[in-house]
Simulated assay, not measured.
Amino acid sequence: MDRHQLPAQPLVSVICTCYNQASYLNAALDSVVQQVYPSMELHIIDNGSTDVSRKFILAWQQKNAGKLPIRCQFQDSPINYCQSFNRALAQSSGDLVLDLAADDFLHPRHVAEAVKRLKETKASVYFCNVLHLYPDGRTRAFYPVDASGKAIGPVPQGDVFASVVERYRISSASLVLNASVLKAAGGYDETLVYEDFDLLVRMARDQAFVYGDLLGVTKRVLPDSFSRQQYRAGETRFLSSTLRVCDKIASMLRTEEEVQALKFRLIHETKHALASGNFASAAGFLKRYPNRRLGDWRYYFYKGWLASGWDFSRLYAWWRRRRDL
């Protein structure tokens, strides 16, 4: 059997990582056992929580032990998220892998739809639409939807490399990946602070992506979530990781379209680094901007902003808070 070909009923490994998210664990873990797809295993990682997450996980495991294989790992103190995930990935037996955040939860048909689409197309990576859930109860779909819940407008599929380099056109919260492909790629890059951008570009370089038109994952948008820390004033860990991913992308480029996609990404990251007052990071993005021409007005505009040292980080932080109200 081709290593990318799935068996008749592939085993799906769900890896759920928790850090002080006890209040959301029930929804996340219950959504796994409520899947209509039967062949699954669950790996639960408590990454050094200081709340009651560990106690909850042990109680939940005991209650649901007969429903599917469950394996728990408890860290005494937090470690790098990518490293924690890779440990569970190495112990997993699934043909497919799903990374579930402990504050997200799945639609009952999410895994079944993923398996169906991957088998139909022989793609290596599945993704779908994601429903963003805000603390006040508001919701917003990652891809705008019509009254029936179907995405409006085109969604990238197949070769999505240029798309994911240029913009956040795919929500990593929805990914279901061929385990052999992910393991062969080394899993998540443990030298990075966050994994999703790097994972998307590395998978997209040589693997086909397939879309399922389902709001398969509900993702909570929380003010203290990991993803919300990227463009905070004085916070350079995330921007440093993004710089490293951009360096990786530069070594992968094959077409002029991809070069233009990287240029757009570098300008996007420069803008947010400058707006958040992270000037050293902004300088790093501008330094990597390829093939500079006089027509690249955004490059020269942001270069001027960098030279001026204008700090709008407080206004930018206010704007980001207002945007999510």
Rank of each mutant, 00 (worst) to 15 (best):
H4T: 13
Q5W: 03
L6Y: 05
P7W: 08
P7T: 07
A8L: 14
Q9T: 13
V12A: 12
S13Q: 11
V14R: 12
N20G: 03
N20Q: 03
Q21D: 14
Y24L: 08
Y24S: 13
L25Y: 00
L25S: 12
L29N: 06
V32S: 06
Q35R: 09
Q35M: 03
Y37S: 11
P38I: 01
S39V: 13
S39T: 13
S39Y: 10
S39E: 14
L42T: 06
H43D: 01
D51S: 02
V52W: 02
K55T: 11
K55M: 04
F56D: 04
W60K: 11
K67N: 04
K67R: 15
L68I: 10
L68P: 06
R71D: 04
P78T: 07
C82A: 14
F85T: 02
R87Q: 14
A90K: 14
S93T: 03
G94P: 10
L96F: 05
L98T: 03
D99E: 09
L100P: 07
D103I: 01
D104C: 12
F105R: 05
R109K: 14
A112F: 06
A114H: 09
A114F: 07
V115Q: 05
R117D: 00
F127A: 02
H132D: 10
L133C: 01
L133W: 00
P135I: 03
P135R: 07
D136K: 01
T139Q: 06
R140F: 00
V145F: 01
D146A: 04
G149F: 03
A151D: 00
G153I: 06
G153F: 10
G153W: 09
P154G: 04
V155N: 08
Q157Y: 01
G158K: 06
F161M: 10
A162P: 04
V164H: 11
R167Q: 11
R169T: 14
R169E: 13
S174E: 05
L175R: 03
A179T: 15
A179W: 07
S180Y: 09
K183P: 02
A185F: 12
G186H: 06
G187R: 13
D189Y: 09
E190F: 06
L192R: 10
Y194L: 11
F197A: 03
L199S: 12
M203Y: 09
Y211I: 03
G212V: 02
L222G: 02
S225H: 04
R228P: 00
E235R: 08
R237Q: 13
S240T: 13
R244P: 01
V245E: 06
C246L: 04
D247N: 12
K248E: 12
A250K: 12
L253H: 11
L253E: 12
E257Y: 07
V259C: 10
A261W: 08
L262T: 01
K263Q: 15
K263V: 09
K263Y: 09
I267D: 13
H268D: 15
K271F: 13
H272V: 04
H272G: 02
A273C: 09
L274C: 05
L274I: 08
A275V: 00
N278P: 01
F279Y: 10
S281G: 12
G284E: 07
F285L: 03
R293I: 05
L294G: 01
G295K: 13
G295S: 13
D296H: 15
R298P: 01
R298W: 07
Y300T: 02
F301T: 04
G304E: 05
W305Q: 14
A307H: 00
D311Y: 03
F312D: 07
L315R: 14
Y316F: 15
W319E: 13
W319R: 15
R320I: 02
